[in-house]
Every structure is written in C-alpha cells, then in structure tokens.
Design a protein around this nucleic acid. Sequence first.
DNA 1: CCTAGGCTCCTTTTT
DNA 2: GGAGCCTAGG
Length: 766
Amino acid sequence: MFPLSSAAPSLSQQAQAYVQGARYLAALNPEQRAGVETLDGPVLVLAGAGTGKTRVLTTRIAHILATGRARAYEILAVTFTNKAAREMRERVEALVGEGVEAIQWLGTFHAISAKILRRHAELVGLKPNFTILDTDDQIRLLKQALKAENIDDKRWPARALAHQIDAWKNRGLSPAQVPAGEAHSFANGKGGVLYALYQERLKILNAVDFGDLLLESLRLFRERPDVLAEFHRRFKYILVDEYQDTNTAQYLWLRLIAQGRRNLCCVGDDDQSVYGWRGAEVENILRFEQDFPGAKIVRLERNYRSTGHILAAASHLIAHNEGRLGKTLFTDGALGDKPTVTGVWDSEEEARAVGEEIEQLQRRGHALEEIAILVRASFQMREFEERFITLGLPYRVIGGPRFYERAEIRDALAYLRCVSSPADDLAFERIVNTPKRGLGDATLQLLHEYARRESVPLTHAARVLTESEEIRPKPRATLRGFIDDIERWRALSETKPHHELAETVLEESGYTDMWREEKTPDAAGRLENLKELVRAMEEFPDLSAFLEHVSLVMEVDEAAGSERVSIMTLHGAKGLEFETVFLPGWEEGLFPHQRSLDDNGRAGLEEERRLAYVGLTRAKRRAKIFFATNRRIHGLWQATMPSRFIDELPAANVEVVESASASQYGAYGVSRFAGLDRYSSGYDTPGWRRAKEAKSQPQGKRAAPPIIEGRVLSKSTASAPFEKGARVMHLKFGPGTVQEVDGDKLSVAFDHAGTKMVKAAFLERG
DNA sequence: CCTAGGCTCCTTTTT
DNA sequence: GGAGCCTAGG
C-alpha cells in the first residue's frame, strides 16, 4: 500500500523505534502504533477502510514475538476467511523472518474449532475422525429428515430448513435452547423436532456441519471448565480480524476463550459490516466496551488508500447511518478526481459505457489489473462479460463456483470418502449410481430400510442384502460388484499413495469414462478438473489430511497476475483495492436491494449503505457510479429509479457526467445533479416516456431495435445471403469471418469470441 | 430406471 | 430469461 501522504510518525518517534531495536514499529503512525503496543487487556482497534488494519494485526503479532511476551504457539489469531488467514500468516512471516516457528493457532474460526474438536472429540460425543459436511450434504440429510417426518418438502423446502437451522446455530442455540415459538415456526410446529432429529442423525454419521464446529466447541468450553482452563493457559494473546462480522456463536466462543488472560485484541470496522444476512451481529462491535470492561479503543482514521474527493463522498454517504461508533476518515493526500455519476438508458448501454471507459483508460496506459467492476448481485455480471467478449477485453470473474463445489470434484471426493470411511452414508448415496449403474431409488430404498432397522451404515446394509433374495438379481449383482470394488480400493489404500489410489478409483469405477463419453462442451473441462484434483492431493501427506483441507479450505487459487479487469460482487470486494472502480446498477430495488429493505427494514437499508461505502472505499483514484433507467428483472423490463444513495452523496465532491456511449448513440443520461430534478417530480423525460412505452410492450420486448456500434441491425439487410469468407458483425459476439454456410445457419470464426454456429438473421455484413 | 418437459424460484456467501 | 428440481410418462 502506498501512502498518499508523507509518513505520519514524527522523526523522533521513528528514531525511538530504532533504538528499541523494533524496526517494524518505525513504519507505523501513532495510532497504529498504539494498536500494536497496547498489549495488556482488551483492545478494540476501530480501523476505517484503507487505514492499515492488517498491518496493525501483523505487526502486533511480530511485536509480541519480538519482545518475548509469548511464543508462537501461545498466540491465537482468528480470521473469517482462509484468504485472510493466509495473508496474515505470510505478512507475519515476512516481518519476523521465516524459519521462526509457525503460528499454529492462526486460522479461521472454523478451522481452529475443528482443531480443538479433533483433540477432544470424545467429550462431545464424536470420534476424532469425524466428517465435516458441507451445505450439499446438509440439504440431503435434511431432505431425509423431512421425508421421515412426512412433511411435504414442496411447502417446506429442505433449503429453508437448512437456513433456519444455520440461523439457530449462528445464535449459539442447540435444539433444546431454541425458543418454543421459533421451534414451531417451521412446518406447523415441527421445526424444533427436525433440528433435533438432524443433530441425532449427524452424531450417528459421526459428522458435523459448519455451524457445529463452533457450537460443539462452545459446548465443550461450557461443559468442561478443565479443558477451557487448558486453553486459557495456552493462549497468552488473542487477536481477531473483522470483528464486526462475528455472529453470536463466535462471540460467545471468543468471550469464553478470552476470559483467561483477557489479552484480546479485536480489529474491525462497524461501517463495513455487510454480513448481517448470514448472522453477523454489528452489535458485537458496538458493545465491545461493555463486554470487556476497561477496554482500550484505538481509532485508525488516517486513510492511505483513496484520494480526497472519494473519501469525502464515502464519508458523507455513511454518515446517513445511525448507530455507528463514528469515525472520520481523512487523508493528507491530493483531492484527486471526483467520483462520477452517470445515468444510462438500460443495462446494455451501461455495459457499453463501462467498456468504453475501460478502453479509454487502457489507451492512456492504465493497467487492467487495477480496474474492477463491483456489482450488487451476480446476475449483473453477465452483461459485462458479454460486452467484454465482444470488445476482446480480458476480464476475470471473481467468486464464481469454487473448485471444490463443482459436481465432478464432489463426486470424486465422495468416492474417496467412501473408501476412507465405510460409515459415510452421504458419500455412498452420492456415488452409488454415478455413473449410472442401474441402482436407482428402488434399490436404495431397500438399503435405507435395512440400515435404519439395524442401525448400520448403508455399505453394511448393501453387503448383507446382496446375500439375500430381497433385491432382484440384476441390481443385486451390480451392487455386489460395486461394494466389492469399494472394499478392494480400501485394501489398496493400505499400500498405494493416496493420489495414485484416487486415479485408480476414478478409472475403475467408470467415473472418468462417464465424462469422456459425455459430449457436452464442458466435459473436457471437468476431466481437467479431476486431473487437477489428483495433482492437488500430492501436496498432502495422506487422504485424511487432504479431506480435512478440502472441507475447510474450499477455494481455488485465483490465476492472478495476468492483465485483466476484475468483475465481482461488492461483498467479494471487501478488503481489496483498485485504482479505478466501476459501480454499476445504483438503482432503487437493486441497490439498495428490495429484499433487504422488505426483510430488514431500516437495518437492511443501513447494511446496504455500508455496502455502498465498501464499494466507494475500494477506489484509490477513480470511482464511477452508474444507474440505468431500465433494467430487466426476472425477464421483464422495468423502469427503475436512481438509488437513494446517489442523492446521499455530497454534491460538492461528485461530478455528473454524460454516458460515453450516450453522446455517441444519442441515448439518454440524467441525474438530479444535471440541474433538473427529474426524478423526484413529474417523471416527464424522454427516458420516462420511452420506459412507459417499453413497459406497455409485450413482455421482454424492447421498443427500439438493437443497436450495435451505432448501426441498426434490421431484418432486411441481415437476411441477405452470406458467402464463405465474408466479414460479418454479430450482436453479441462482435466481428468475425464466415467459415461454413448451411442454409440460414453459419459457422463464424469471431475475432474475440471463438468459432460459433449462428443464425444468419443475427448477422450483418461488417 | 431413465428422460423430457413443466414448474418455480430468483441477493449477497464463508466455512 | 434461465437454472434446477420434480413429476409423469415411456
């Protein structure tokens, strides 16, 4: 991070730091230094956006180590994401030098809880090798529970129950602790029963879900003071990142574990709390002083990231929230460019305008790596992607489906789980008929009945039933073959290295063949992913170490480095920074999102506003806000109004600009800053009239024909025949050359979008 | 047992 | 508009 201003610590302070032999302190400003050096007792570091919070955390750890206050294994450092944990570890190592003993207890809440539970599993009724289930397994298990209770899963979907149970777990509530009223809220009073049933089932499977990692270790702390005391003795210093994101369970967990020596340092920013919808309680950070009497509060308000106007705009916006701890960010740096606000006709023009501005920046020598488009909801991404493909502009979508969430990877893992633990019913169910073996519901039903009756795992039931006459001969033989395979693989796992075993299993089970035979375009990619999985396994000593990694560290390394524009959600952008940030879709209903307002009222609105604040403060030098007056929502074109957040920006620090593409194509851009307050009164603008016309059209149809590169693609010109080699233009894919002609279908090699089959009606000579 | 077609939902996302 | 999920029919 480059300070925009001259270094804040005074010369004498810097010199002092060197005298003490603590070189790392010299780089800090006085507030950061207080955050590092206030080691005794509870400390809350309120770190505004871009004020160097990670630096404080990492330097604090280095300082504790350097002063000999604690050894590396006596420090507990908790983060929310694996990414944050990794970054913290790397930066601490850079400060103290590698080779120093690793900080064992640095990790996510979940990873650390898992580590604690593996050590004391028996005390909470688990075996140390318990399985950690992900959302997918969780849902399937709940579906079974619903079925067992004869509940219509149409009316009461398993997904909704999963959310409810998660919400209870986030609040630290076991089935017995759920308030009666809430327990009855699901499925006409069955909610509590289902929760209890689900927990029972987990115990039988020797499994926990993510919420349980926290909840069970919390229970352990509560029920076993001796165990808790052991952790009190061990952890001399505790650090927590992103404290504003803690949920109640995490808060209770922390409070218990920090009770010992009370050397707790929490770092966070109440203005960046954007995870309320998954259980985060801003109140935790607001209440810190009451929770930890005698706590010192350190405020980091000197911003090293953004230029003045951006900071002013963000600060003014967030000031509309009530119930803040209150910080005033400032910078000694230049005022820089004002954030811009641009109105466009619709989302298509928005993508076009953003694309054009990016090309302009590119021409002026700006790095694409330093440009990001931050959207509220992921459906907004597609339009930008399409536009960028047309332009041949390299981009990267961040936060797509994660590697370990892909079906082929989960299937492969299910095979391995089956081999490594015979009792893993969920894994068995997942792959028993993948690839298709002719073992359908009917057979599985028989296995389930037997397994339930005898309280044995499904594989065991399968073994027994293949010896009886209960299953018809054909599936019986298949089933026997299959469990023989599993047992053979299990025997093999004694001798074969685990990654070779994985290869064998995937080959012999016919799983890789299944994809090889599949003709869909993504089959090749899936096979690639499977290879990548086997490669990744080599880095782990054994199968169980790998499976632990997979269940807790579900992510892929982003292929960073290459020159690309980033497209991501505002949530995903938290903690990142870019020279230029595009903020499209600032419209009522989308941002703030209607659902947020409907479900959570004022609190929802404030969280949305914090999200806007997060978005603006990602920008180092340029923030560009857009709103469209028409957007397709659920397939219907709707007229939209600019976001109230636009009107909450300080006019003095914001500039209204016309859309780059509007001037070219005669489209339409407007805002109250343009002088006419068109939106709060009257609705009589060309755009509004067109919006009304568009609305009265049959659904989904635009009034105007599609425009590309300033030309109208009309049917008459488009249907003229094309010959091989002709240069053509396509609405979505841009320019290309005709390769093959087959009636009205053409194979076209597009300059930027590869070769595709397209209809002649969508092409124009180019 | 498998597949096609109909129905429903649609914010954000980590572990 | 479209993905995913379930049901009905082959």
